[in-house]
Design a binder for these strands. Sequence first.
DNA 1: ATCCTCCCCTAC
DNA 2: TAAGGTAGGGGAGGAT
Length: 987
Amino acid sequence: MAHDEDNGFAEWGGYFEAKKSKLEEQFAAASDPFRKSNLFAGISIFVNGLTNPSADELKRIMMVHGGTYHHYERPHTTFIIASNLPDVKVRNMDTSKIIAAQWVVDCVQKERVLDYKPYLLYTNQKTTQPRLNFGKSKKEKEANSSTVTICEQVATTTQLEGQLGSILKELQQAALTATSNDVSKPADNTSINATVNGNAARTAVDPAFLSEFYKKSRLHHIATLGAGFKQYVCELRQAHGNKPFGKRAELKSLLPDSLGNDTARYVMHIDMDCFFVSVGLRNHPELRGLPIAVTHSKGGSSATDVPVHPQANRQVELELFAQRFEQHQHDNIRADKVRTGFEEKMSLSEIASCSYEARAKGIRNGMFVGQALKLCPELKTIPYDFEGYREVAFALYDTVAQYTLNIEAVSCDEMFVELTDMLQELQLDVMAFVGHLRQEVRGKTGCPCSAGVGSNKLLARMATKVAKPDGQHLLTTNDAAEYMAATTLDALPGVGHGMTYKLNQAGLRTCGDLQKIAIEQLETLLGKKSAQTIYQNCRGIDLRPLVYEQQRKSVSAEVNYGIRFTKAEECETFLRQLSAEVHSRLLEIKRKTKHITLKIMVRAAEAPVETSKFMGHGVCDNQSKSVVLKQSTDDVNTITSQVLILMRQCEVPPNELRGIGIQLSKLDEPGEEKKENVIKKMFVKMSEKQREKPTLLSTAAPAEPSTKMPAPENPKAKSRPNVLDMLKNASNKKSTVLEAKSQIETKTETPTTKATTSMFHSQFDPEILAQLPEDIRREVLAHKEEYLRSEVGHAKRKSSDNSASSAKRAPPPILPICSPLNASDFLPSTSRAALVKQQERVQRKSYAHANNTPQIVLDCGGWNELEAPSKSAPDCVSAESNNLLLQSNYKDALASWVETEEPLTTDVKLIEFQICELIEMNHFDQIYEVMKYFCRLIKSKRRESCLWHIAYNRIENKIQHRMLETLGYGLSFREAINCANCSAYPQ
DNA sequence: ATCCTCCCCTAC
DNA sequence: TAAGGTAGGGGAGGAT
């Protein structure tokens, strides 16, 4: 999709549950860099009891579709999924969000967030309302036959549909109408009541807005697909290794040889012709040859008679655009957009892609439909076909990948391919190969593509311009000089409106003109870097190599549409959602960030409050603010709190906001996490090994777990994920030799382990190191040193910082979960019920309220300082036995950890992880014991070490945050580190 | 000099 | 109605 060619886009949501073609399976197997959809973004579920589909399946569906699955009900859980609950259970619950699992299934099937009300289990009417899926497209039906689980559900629904017929159709429509009326009523303020309503997610205030918007945003999909195919190429290359390309052989018999011994360099640029239109036309063959545009607008009267917002004023906005155009005269496109077809009632929907016939009439991608209709009243519009775009894009990539993987992905429909090596190996004629390839793409996709070939990327790209549409062209080095000289400057890659304007102002119009200019002159005009690039490019020189495996440098999520807040709370809620979104994208690429940037669009002072374009941003001023963290993070709370702080710093009234974006950059090195995990595993592995040693001597079958654990061995335990598996899954990296043995098994405690070693020991076992392959060994050692240096240095710097000047330091970040709550907010009846239950379970004694935050006061009482625990056996089994802090020797481990001079962050994180697991398992008693013991250890052994104090406080903080987050209350620890030197250290 | 932040530009 | 995202590159100007 060259920018003058196609800006079109593919809708993406709901794609994966669509039929799985072979290509797609291949793709998924490669590791699925794509979110299947964002359908459930901002929506969380908690599954209570048995459901159909099962909790596991629902979890999978939520994850795959951008939702959140809560293992425990939390105050902000959007829905509770259940099939039926005992009355006694229900009595204490807020039934307004208990719905049937079928809702999830139906949403996936309909590819939109449906009104949940018909799925309520407990309503006044007592019965769930009949539901129908009418107007189901052929595609949707196909889609459903893909996933087995969903398939069954759908079959039921479809049968039902058949039986109930049109009467129920009306019934449902009535139900939907009723619902939308409900929305306007002031409901109680839980967000789900606001509008989790099929098609009414109009502004960013609606919790379903984000997913709805992303589902329909062409630009979002263009970007996501582009990134996805870059990743895809990496994966294909890694999977392929050094294997030969089987498909090359048959080329030899099909195609003519090259003339003589051709050693020239050949780079191919291949690009689909008006991508979206071509794909769309496969379903509308009758429209071939006509002026076509892909757009959301339905065309006809809906494009020429659009409702006008009473407060919008196109005239004012147009003048404002004109005024700004005067200031930035280069922005021709935008000015042009407003110049025609901007009067009342003309559609302001944008054209994603238009056919060559439409282009002949002056229609361009990105133009408003209204404007286009003025140029060409007979313009036909066709809808997006997201499924088709992806299918075609995969076919394109896979076709090329049969012959070579020297591919630089540019976007979903465009790439550079280095052909030199392959052509020399086979002695093939280059254009014969290109023709063959294009034919194959055409055959597989039914869509035309064009290809250009040259001795570098620039010339290949220029050749494609000549080739289009549906053609191919070789721009030889001999022709290049002449061709370039005649080319206008705006045709050069990287030269857009702004630069074209500047250059034109200087009297430069073509590359030929530019070739006569001294580089110094160009540098004053454009800046050093741009000048150098364009200086070379206008001569046909392009030194950039093809980049096959591209490395992400930032992740971002932004929304500049539908942003209309009336209250600060609405804005905050949306910022949280967007933070969660960008966070999940960060997790997807398995990186961490150090730099968080908030970008906002603010209504220009003179601009009308309501925009001409429905829910558009109108004329705005932009701003951005950023913060650099001391340490890389992938923690959603950190990101969210920083974003909230940045927004506060902007001091913009929420009602003036028209766009919001969050960008994460300064990403850590990929693979760093892997290294860290290797180290974590080393620690654990060591303790395992050390503890195994004596066992090896005394037991015949060392692989067998010891039977000393009080908890009975669960036969399933081995197949369940343990901590290390979870760590492994979290990193999802290639396995290392360590993995094979890295299961934590139940251990026999022996006297030798006590004093000499622990899982926290900071030295690596040379024996284990020796077993590692050389490269990993080097990596581990190198990383260990670097790690020790940076962590310790960092902590030291921080603590001395603290003693030096605390006044200068910014206030500690306000974590979102700490924002003020109303007393009624933090203990909704549901979580109160859960709380009561937990109280019974662990025999808690009382509530305490402090700082408006309810806390559970734990008092397990009765054990002496540093005494071995009286009981450590959990009353539940299986996965729990893998938690290090539930092992009988956890105290020894802690004790010998505290023996080491300084705590490593890796170990602190490991403990945090383990404790978070305990929270998940409701082992508050154990948390309390661990922390009490840990605190006393530090007090007795590390009284002077602020590094240890900080470590303790960090862990406690983590516990409180997690507790608040998951259960809505904190834990009150009786013991605390009170160190005058570091107590003010912000966590 | 070199870096950083806050932009702007460009591409698809 | 409409779905104006996302990533990379780089420049201006201030901080160090």
